[in-house]
Amino acid sequence: MRVGVPKEIKTNEHRVGLTPTAVREYVAHGHQVTVEAGAGLGAGFTDEAYVKAGARLSPDAATVFAGADMIVKVKEPQPTEWVRLREGQILFTYLHLAPDPEQTKGLMASGCAAVAYETVTDARGGLPLLAPMSEVAGRIAVFSAAETLLKHNGGMGLLFCGVPGVAPARVLVLGGGVVGMNSARMAMGLGAEVVVLERSIPRMREIDELTGGRVITRYSSIGAIEEELLKADVVIGAVLVPGAEAPKLIKREHLKQMKPGSVLVDVAIDQGGCFETSHATTHEDPTYVVDGVVHYCVANMPGAAPRTSSEALNNATLPFGLALADHGLNALKRDPHLARGLNVLKGQITYPAVAQALGLDWSDPFGVWPHG
């Protein structure tokens, strides 16, 4: 199969769809890989490294898209990219379609088969291609919160870890999944007081065991959220409904109850955000203030560590990508977990939560499967 890797063009996005190490694996499987010149530079991978791994270099993205049977990316295609997709072509990347009707329409119009990293599952019910970026994002969220709390960044002027005789920041984490666990452990390690709100009792037991009881766990309810918001210096939104738009757990009226200069970090912003007042920001201009509360809502937090993120992402995506390259769309028939990643096929939405979020019809993917 001809596999194409264009350079990411979303603002401040420096990750790359395939590392040279991954390219070498595709080539070893007999596939032709074309990489846009400079695609890996932001993550520290030179064009020479790609050539050494067996890739061909292309001078521009248009050539990459035109010559590929499968496009491997990191972030969702931008408007100039989705118009380059075509019927029969496979797109393998993060999509986050639920809060993005325009991208969804663009992918449907292209006729491509769009496979989303974030909805591929595993035998344990996890999201193996979302997990590595959730780990990175959860940790970066804590660093970002600590920086934002400083006065010159708009925060209340609180040192995250405190000093002897002065209390550290109190961090409220909404959700105890991969993002929440990594945020909680990182915040705890930096000396903060940490509370995690979660609805899975087994997960709360796991958090308690992993942190030696140093992280407070509470069952997530409206009342618990409201009580904890009054005490929190930092709130990290880490809730996820696979493929669907994130629930809005904090409303505008809640902000008036919070401490002036406190910080909200919305890691769920890719799925629409879990705070009512959230809107996506960039690493160039990451924060804004609503009712005295600083919002940090960067939509590609792992992009701040592109080397680590690209390598971690490729470790997870490689076997699935190779399956698609080796078998085409038949790989989805062979692996029901990979099939869960299919969001759009032949102009139709094939993931129920996306269709529900956008008020569109859902089609059984096997009912619209290409013949032959």
Rank of each mutant, 00 (worst) to 15 (best):
G347S: 08
R218E: 14
G189C: 11
H337Y: 15
A123C: 08
G223V: 10
F275Q: 10
Y117C: 00
G223L: 09
T119V: 01
T217V: 15
L342E: 07
V289L: 06
D233F: 08
G237N: 00
A305T: 14
E25F: 02
T121A: 05
H327L: 04
L158D: 08
G30K: 07
L18D: 02
E227F: 05
E253N: 14
Q32L: 13
Q271A: 00
W82H: 15
M186F: 11
V368H: 09
K73M: 07
A145C: 03
A109R: 12
V298P: 04
G341I: 03
V51H: 11
S309M: 03
M108W: 05
R252T: 15
L150Y: 12
S220P: 04
L342N: 09
P352W: 05
V163Y: 07
M188P: 07
D291I: 11
I140F: 02
V16K: 00
T287Y: 06
Q32S: 15
L324D: 11
D285R: 14
R84Y: 06
N182W: 06
N343Q: 13
P77A: 09
I349G: 10
D361W: 00
M204I: 08
E36P: 08
L338M: 07
G367A: 12
E245R: 15
T119Q: 02
V195H: 02
A137R: 01
F320N: 04
G191D: 11
V263H: 08
Q32T: 15
D335R: 12
K73S: 07
K7L: 12
G359R: 09
S310Y: 03
L197A: 12
E36V: 12
G372H: 09
N330F: 13
A37D: 13
I201E: 12
V64W: 08
S110C: 04
A43C: 05
R334Y: 13
W369E: 09
P260N: 11
I222T: 14
D270V: 00
L150A: 13
L229H: 00
R170T: 15
L190Q: 14
E8C: 05
N182P: 11
V196T: 05
A184D: 10
D361C: 09
R218D: 07
G189V: 12
G189H: 11
V16Y: 02
L345M: 14
P128G: 02
D364L: 06
A123V: 12
V166E: 00
